[in-house]
Structure formats: C-alpha cells, structure tokens
Design a binder for these strands. Structure first.
Length: 305
DNA sequence: CGCCAGGACGCCC
DNA sequence: GGGCGTCATGGC
C-alpha cells in the first residue's frame, strides 16, 4: 500500500473533553472505511481495552518512541457506520495538531483500503479462491494496519509465542506496571533481568526478552538498518538474530512495527484458515504490499468464528 | 485432570 | 531439510 492517500481524513472539530483532555472529531468519509472494533481486536496491539459496555470504543496507551511521553488515547468509533466504515471518528487525548502530525498516520487513515481490496481480489488465481478471499475481506472490512512502535511490537510479539491474546495482554500490562505505567525500554528489561521478567509471568520467553534488549542496546540489531533494507528477507534475518524470533514473530514485527505490508504472518489460526479456505494451497506473494491486510482479514474472520 | 494458546529452539535423523 | 519433544503460564 502506497500511503500516498488521495483522501486524508479531516479534523472537523477540536475541543476540551470533560476529562480536561483535548479531543478531536475526524471526518473519515471517503477513505475506504474504518472500524475501531476490528482494528483493535484483530491481535495487532495488546495495550488497548474496550470501554465497559462499548463494542465500538477503546482506550489505551501509544508508545511514541524512546524518551517520548506516551499518549493515552480513547478511540470512539460509535459515529462510524458499522457496515461501510464511513462517518466521524472521535479521539480523546490528542488535539488537531497531534492528530494531523502523527495519528492520522498511526491509524493509517491515508491509505485507500477499498483500492486494496480490489488489488487483492484481482491477484487471486481462480474464481473459487477469489470468492473465499472476498468473504474474508468483507468480514475484516474496516481493519487498519496500525503503524506501531517497532520496539513495542518486538517485545509484545516475542511474548505472543505459544501464548494466547488475553494472557499476552496480561503480561504486557504487568510489564508496564513494573516500569512506572509505561512500556519498558530496553534498559528497563535489562534492569529487571531475566529473573525479574520471569517473575512477571513471561515464562520461557523471559530469556528471549533479555536477548532482545541486549542486542538492541549493543547495536547488533538496529531498527534504522532494518527499516532501510530493500528485501523482506534481509529485514527478517536481522530480526531472527534475536533469540526467540522466528519467521512468524519477525513477520508480525515487520508488518505492525515497520509497516512492511508485504509481510504475511502465519500462525496456528492462519494455518487453519488457509487449509479451510484454500485447500489447494495459498501464495501470498502475488498480493504484494496488500498481503498483510489480506492476512489480517483472514485471521480476524477465522478467530471471530 | 487434560488441552490449548499469534512459535521457536534444540536435537535427531 | 523435515520431524518431534520441550518450554511457563493461565483459562477453560
């Protein structure tokens, strides 16, 4: 996906919420649809939680980068049509300037996902597989690939292996609680040590997190270098130099943390989805930069039932 | 009690 | 290169 979107969302009002925090309303019509519920419940982020009794509103913290204060954000999608994903999005915790400079990009609202659907379907090899993909895209319509912080995605997806989403969220929340209610930096993991991470419930993944922190701090793994690789395999191999990072975790980090949208993570859910929908086999390569979005739709549809 | 979870490692052949 | 047991933990 190009990200050189034709129609950027527009801030239609800015105010101070009763909480005292800044808030903006954003016109999301004509950008290809957006669903808060699906985007924050499709397993790409683990630090947002549904507001009680609200299927269409979430609240969570966004890591903006090392040394930059996190943003506590409430995302209210109740003004978006659940079918078309068109309407007004309300964000509490940021003003218009922060939205335009950072969060329009974070939500990937400048990318035309309707065009992406057409590209994906046109790349399907036959009518039967096209029908299967069409159904999955319909179910996942409104999902956006968030542009998250690479370090946060690395840590959370190391924790994801042989684990389930509720428990990943639990461990991440304990990690943040142990680091002053913010996401830990590499130095924080070093300070906690493998024993400390183990005590927080990371299990056998504790040593993986220690290794990740050490290799980031030493420069053996470098996010700028990863970002600069042309070939997906080069970026994947550098990430796989970290203990506990294999093809699946690397794919998630590249997709969600580096917006390498040609990544196509395959986990147990995806294996089930692919075997069920495409028994003759499935090749994500022809999907190009839309492979990651197609994967998210297949994953969401499979897990949603 | 068992089984499973956004897998990867270490070892075997 | 493929196959298989193992790894912590919590929820069911």
């Amino acid at each position: 996906m190009s990200g050189t979107g034709r129609k950027m969302p527009r801030v239609v009002s800015e105010r101070t919420a009763p909480s005292g925090l800044p808030a903006v309303s954003v016109d999301c019509r004509g950008i290809g649809g957006f669903s808060v519920e699906k985007t924050f419940d499709c397993g790409q982020t683990f630090r947002f939680f549904r507001l009680p009794g609200r299927a269409d509103a979430v609240c969570g913290s966004v890591r903006m980068g090392k040394g930059i204060p996190e943003v506590l954000l409430t995302v209210d999608g109740s003004g978006l049509d659940p079918d078309s994903g068109e309407g007004i999005l309300v964000l509490e915790g940021i003003g218009a300037r922060t939205f335009e400079e950072r969060f329009a990009d974070y939500f990937d609202l400048g990318t035309d996902y309707a065009e992406g659907e057409r590209i994906i379907l046109s790349a399907m090899p036959d009518e039967r597989s096209r029908a299967e993909m069409s159904e999955a895209l319909w179910r996942g319509r409104g999902i956006r690939i968030l542009r998250q912080d690479p370090w946060e995605t690395l840590v959370t997806f190391i924790l994801s292996q042989n684990n389930n989403i509720p428990r990943i969220r639990l461990i991440v929340s304990r990690l943040c609680a142990a680091c002053g209610d913010r996401f830990p930096d590499p130095e924080d993991l070093t300070r906690l040590g493998t024993d400390g991470l183990y005590a927080l419930g990371c299990g056998f993944r504790a040593k993986y997190l220690s290794d990740a922190a050490a290799k980031l701090l030493s420069g053996q793994v470098d996010f700028d270098r990863i970002r600069a690789y042309r070939r997906y395999e080069d970026a994947e191999k550098e990430l796989e130099g970290i203990l506990g990072v294999g093809p699946k975790v690397a794919a998630c980090v590249l997709l969600f943390g580096f917006h390498r949208t040609d990544a196509f993570p395959v986990d147990v859910w995806m294996k089930k989805a692919l075997a069920r929908r495409f028994p003759e086999g499935f090749d994500p390569v022809p999907l190009g930069d839309w492979a990651g979005y197609a994967q998210q739709c297949l994953f969401y549809a499979e897990r949603d039932g």
